[in-house]
């Protein structure tokens, strides 16, 4: 399974903070996003936002990155701490 996390405004927009996806549904993060959109059409605009950042196992990566069973993938808006 792949653990998927959402944070901040995106978490509120999707009304979801965490879910699990079977690895058979996605070889890359781009495919994972497409799978999530297919399962939840109401998420389309929010997950298509070009500004979103993606982290794989807590490191920021490109959406073309491949995923493995046990991976943690997070989607979130640009950061605003400090």
């Amino acid at each position: 399974m792949i653990k998927v996390l959402f944070f901040a405004q995106l978490r509120e927009q999707l009304q979801c903070s965490e879910l699990m996806v079977a690895e058979a549904n996605a070889k890359t993060i781009a495919q994972l996003r497409d799978f999530l959109i297919a399962q939840h059409p109401q998420w389309t605009d929010f997950l298509s936002n070009e500004k979103l950042l993606i982290a794989l196992n807590q490191t920021v990566v490109k959406i073309s990155q491949t995923v493995q069973p046990g991976d943690e993938v997070a989607f979130f808006p640009p950061v605003t701490g400090g």
């Binding site: 901040a8 920021v60 997070a74 979130f76 950061v79 605003t80 701490g81 400090g82």
Partner: peptide, 8 residues
Amino acid sequence: LKTRAPFW
């Protein structure tokens, strides 16, 4: 910190 650390 302001541009890389995941705080919102």
